[in-house]
Design a protein around this nucleic acid. Structure first.
Lengths: 231, 231, 231, 231
DNA sequence: AGCTAATCGAGACGGTACGTCGTGTCTTTTC
DNA sequence: GAAAAGACACGACGTACCGTCTCGATTAGCT
């Protein structure tokens, strides 16, 4: 959604906005935020800077729009009929997303927003945080609501905490993978998420009967938490 | 802890590092990350740029050190006797940490490391990651080990997923708070974390009595996930 | 006199040329030549740039037309009966002209033409030069011709040098005046030119009685003229 | 004379100012004032823009200094013993100067000064006008003063007008030459100036005896004043 | 005491990006 | 079918900061 176009005069090139957002994402993923520049995006897209500034006043706004444009297609409304199935769907989707460059960018921008003083570009970027990251957490929340309807979850449960745990778990997991693990996760995200979803679902079940016993979690390797695994 | 000083030659001004970190914090709190510049810090401190570059190679490292220097150490060694109590201690400490500017920067740098190509700055930043996140890692490892000893957690459990969920949950929670919620969370971080920790502990308990539910679906096909092709 | 309008198609807004020239003059007087821009004129007039470029190819041409439109024609056809009187008339007219903004721009453009490579803009600008400077040329030619008829000037005289001296003298004089002298010159241009014209007329008089003086030296060698080698 | 250098800190590269001025002149003569840009000068010299802006705040000041640096060597203090000889020396020197690119530039800048609003860069550029163009006119004035001492000129003569006429005549002449005439003038500037100097000297002589007679001027061609000849 | 070696202020330097502005061309709609 | 309006590629503006560098002036410990 670039800024309001006008009626009279030469109309804007309809393809250009898309090309610019694509170029912006390429630029960002290649160089990171620190070297993300309007100049660079224009260069990469083979256009003048005016074409950019006509549509987006700052590079933040450009990046936000660009991210949104590729995030939107991520439909997060599974309906497998079970809490476990729904969460597995969403979790593996999210993992796939945050393993890709757009996911990286999304998290980094979200962080930049969190770091930024509120009075600065707050208005511009807050909407983004709500839209993109919030969307993901909202998807999980929705699944939890369905679970309440099916009786799989107490109505009074803290759905926000649950959603944060799963969402955060996925994100942190995606960041902590070694290159070889990364490859494996890309190849089969559902298998990658199976264990974590099972863990979360177990926490979600409304009323656990007491009786402790041996867990059936098949673990990962139990060699303690390496630094990379933690973060 | 600025970079290794040398033996011979004129010794460093012992006060200067402190003055520079103070100036860095003033600069950061006044203008935010976006306008945080080495030049600005030097200007504010009334020194040349060399005094900065002799101690810190990048502004990230400077800021991290500066923030660290004013942060009291987290409570990372709880011993409440129960898994729930220990995790609540750690979770609230982490929340407190990631609500403050030190936590923001820490996450930012961690993300930069995760995203960065391994060959770039790896040596520089890995040391940092170890330093800052090290205590978190040690604390969580210790808690989980204690839980295994107490029989609250199966030795073969996927500790990695559990840690990711708790850690990620706390971080995401801290990022998603509105200003007013933020204030509340700062005031009483334990209350803020109570619900999430309870949820996690429930998931951790070793053996659920009943079956895991009808979660045998093979997950349909990922309709709506055109993400990969869009990148 | 904007460039040739066409017959068919949408007719030009008859008022627009005038409005544009007015806007150009406002812009020029407000900001000076350095910040005189087509864009600024278009903005001030509230029209698109095409309306300007359809009529004037360059901002010089626009400004010249605009200035011309508000300038009364010079007195360039004197007939006082004497060479001195005629030249005084023309010289003071020229002085007046080159003291005003129209004269400035005229000289600027003339210099651009003289400096420019012949193949560049030659066609465009030659027409302009003819139009603006044409009357000066006609007037001076006529005066010199009359002087020949009256016997005040030898038919074989180097009229070119004479004209250059007078014309150049006036222009240089107009450029070298201090603000206060400028004011005085505008108030009474004839008095300002009296001395110079007298000097020129003395040189023009056909035949000096005595010898030309001891000017037979072959001029030494040009010590101190290292200019050419320095370029 | 770039702006005041400082005491402390790394000293300025002593050669750089010269290289920059050379690059500036190259740039100007190649492209004219309209396309004369700091950026272009920096590019040509292979330096950053900071090196330019450190020394000259505006491109006008840069150009002025650059011109001065090549104008200074033009020693204009002939001493042939006669008015005619002195003037011929100076006139041919000036002609040579104004036929070259530096001369073009000098005149154009002088015009820009005359055109500019007084309150703008007036302080900056006025000095230049006085220094460079004034220097040339002053040289002529000095010769005239010597002529007064030798009795070749009335003490009460309007030396300013005379200087303007000769100076202006030379400049206008240099601008009005066709390419072929230009070549001829460069080859032998004294011959080119002979006629004009003779004309001026005749005007200068203190008291003409009456008696008209046939001029000895060997004219140019007498076919009227073509436009180019006038300007 | 003289030497060596580092610190430190200061600032030059080659780069690069900022966001604004102006250029001249091009592509539409409007009359 | 030209006029008019705005999009567009291009590039300069002057400022700011980057990280490296070269200075001079300190300020120690080591011969």
């Amino acid at each position: 959604m670039p800024s309001e176009p006008s009626a009279a005069g030469r109309p804007r090139d309809p393809d250009l906005s898309g090309r610019l957002m694509t170029a912006a994402l390429e630029e960002y993923t290649r160089t990171g935020w620190a070297s993300f520049s309007m100049q660079g995006v224009a260069r990469r897209a083979g256009v003048g800077k005016s074409a950019l500034y006509l549509r987006w006043a700052t590079k933040e706004l450009l990046l936000v729009d660009s991210l949104e444009s590729v995030t939107r297609p991520l439909v997060m409304d599974p309906n497998t009929g079970s809490l476990h199935g729904d969460l597995l769907e969403v979790a593996s989707s999210l993992l796939q997303f945050y393993l890709g460059p757009v996911g990286w960018v999304t998290m980094r921008v979200a962080m930049d927003i969190a770091v930024e003083e509120p009075e600065l570009h707050a208005a511009d970027l807050d909407a983004y945080q709500t839209k993109v990251v919030g969307m993901h957490r909202a998807a999980i929340s929705k699944i939890l609501t369905s679970a309440v309807e099916r009786g799989e979850l107490n109505a009074g449960a803290d759905k926000r905490s649950m959603a944060s745990c799963l969402f955060g778990g996925v994100v942190v997991h995606s960041m902590a993978l070694s290159p070889s693990e990364r490859e494996r996760a890309c190849a089969d995200p559902r298998a990658e998420m199976e264990s974590m979803v099972a863990f979360v679902v177990r926490g979600i079940r409304p009323e656990p009967s007491s009786g402790p016993g041996p867990a059936v979690l098949e673990s990962g390797d139990a060699d303690g938490l390496r630094l990379q695994e933690l973060l």
